[in-house]
């Protein structure tokens, strides 16, 4: 494609999955205990989308990548310390809650509104990327609604691969049932791709990318638009952690078959 793509990635923070999470009831509804203290990471699926975007941009001269992120400004700033070292992008910040106790439609409206403020965005070259779901809410509908609000009707969900073919069409692999892929060919942008894991590894940290990104990331954080997002009118009947059992043993020289047998017995028990 002449002039490359304008790739807008929607992605925000989620609590680091290694942390111990506990729901608590607050004045405005449920939230996570000590959420502001917990380290945050870029939502894993959005992360894959971002890395795929960067990979595509690198191979399509003239392309540009934006990351549109709805979350508490202070936490996004922390997140940038790790993400901004990995791939080049321009940041658009929407300052609001990023927890899972929000309404996807409101989130989609805010994101779409944020995208519409991007100066110089060429809709004819627009590829809208995001995760197929988020690790916070996991509604699995937000990106579709963002796309609808922006008038993007070519939508692909659970994407693992995007290939720009020699004739400029987009060949897209979407996950379907039974471990199979549905292969589609999309004539051209604009299109929405909600990514699963893709096939790319996490990029290494690159100080030069970090340095270049910081020139735009800090001003973007300072210009953050306030975003009103919540779950007004929604009442949560209950919030609980999945039940879990845990037992850790270190063994040496145990054959894998025996380990597998022991694990199966433990699961059945």
């Amino acid at each position: 494609m002449d002039g490359g793509y304008h790739i807008v990635v929607c992605g925000s923070i989620v609590p680091d999955p290694l942390q111990t999470l506990a729901p608590v009831e607050g004045p405005t509804g449920p939230s996570l205990k000590n959420e502001m203290m917990l380290p945050a990471v870029l939502d894993p699926w959005a992360g894959h989308a971002l890395y795929e975007a960067a990979h595509l941009a690198k191979n399509m001269p003239g392309s540009k990548v934006w990351l549109v992120s709805l979350g508490p400004k202070q936490k996004l700033q922390q997140l940038m310390m790790s993400i901004a070292q990995k791939v080049s992008f321009e940041l658009v910040v929407l300052d609001g809650p990023a927890g899972g106790f929000t309404d996807p439609c409101e989130v989609a409206s805010v994101l779409a509104g944020g995208i519409e403020t991007i100066q110089g965005l060429d809709r004819s070259r627009l590829l809208l990327f995001g995760g197929c779901a988020s690790a916070s809410r996991d509604a699995g509908v937000t990106m579709q609604m963002v796309g609808e609000q922006l008038g993007i009707t070519d939508q692909f969900l659970g994407v693992d691969e995007l290939v720009v073919q020699p004739d400029g069409t987009l060949k897209i692999l979407e996950r379907s049932e039974g471990g199979q892929y549905q292969v589609s060919v999309c004539a051209a942008a604009p299109a929405l791709l909600a990514w699963a894991t893709g096939n790319l590894p996490e990029p290494p940290n690159n100080p030069q990318i970090g340095m270049a990104n910081m020139r735009t990331v800090m001003p973007a954080l300072q210009k953050a638009l306030p975003a009103k997002v919540g779950a007004e009118g929604v009442s949560f009947l209950s919030v609980e952690l999945p039940k879990q059992r845990r037992e850790t043993r270190i063994v040496r020289d145990m054959p894998p078959d025996e380990i597998a047998r022991e694990i199966v017995d433990w699961i059945k028990g």
Partner: peptide, 14 residues
């Protein structure tokens, strides 16, 4: 966080 917000310092973890 205060340092990063100032825009005057870059701190790179990892």
């Amino acid at each position: 966080s205060r340092l990063m917000a100032s825009g005057l310092v870059q701190i790179w973890p990892g």
